[in-house]
Amino acid sequence: MAGDAGSVLKVSVWRSSGPGGVAAGDGRFETFEVPRQPSQTVLDVVTHIQRHCDPTLGYRFACRVGVCGSCAMVVNGEARWTCRTHVDKVAEGGRLEVAPLRNLPVIRDLATDMSAFFDKWARARGQFSGTRSRQEPFAVVEPQSEERRQVDLGIECIGCGVCYSSCDVVEWKPDYLGPAAMNRAWTLVNDVRDTARRERLAAVAGDAGCHACHTHMSCTERCPKHLPLTSAIAGLKRETTRALLRGEL
């Protein structure tokens, strides 16, 4: 269905049953009718519902232009940035289904609690550890070096949670770190200035880390930034194995 002015979109929106802190499965879909507009995004649709149909609808957004990563939701079964998803591309037969991200607890309706997602970045040692102070000269990182190229491939992650929501292993193993946290760890493993490589490799090894990845590649396929997340996890598998064989893990 094209975005004909005058036509109507039928939108099923997930509504949580409680006022907050409810489990992801606790709720129901509610259907709204929304007028079609040219170049309409899914976020436009959700905003229309909140402003014109039901002001109690809870959802999260900020920038509206694919920079902040806060408006990710599951649209017709796939996690996406709603602000960068045109209705024309996803509405089949004039219908949309909008749900909160999977694998995260729902705060209210379409807004999820991202705490576990970001806690795992910390658990994967996603913090940079350097040695230089601000009084010392800048470290020189050769732009053409292999390490820097690997960092370039993964550094643009904005933490939207689309990969985490799309990952089967997170669903099966709730303690699994997930693609984004390990992508962050991989950029730091390749950061020549970083001094916590050994601790970081230990943090991402094992059943809750890179070794649990089944290489389904849903994260890579769904990442709105097209980051090679599965390759980053494979890189961690290689480096942890090297560390294991050297007795450094």
């Binding site: 230990a202 094992g206 809750a208 070794h211 942890t240």
Partner: peptide, 10 residues
């Protein structure tokens, strides 16, 4: 331990 888990994977 994660080390043993990594060993099993290898």
């Amino acid at each position: 331990s994660p080390r043993a888990q990594a060993g099993l994977w290898f």
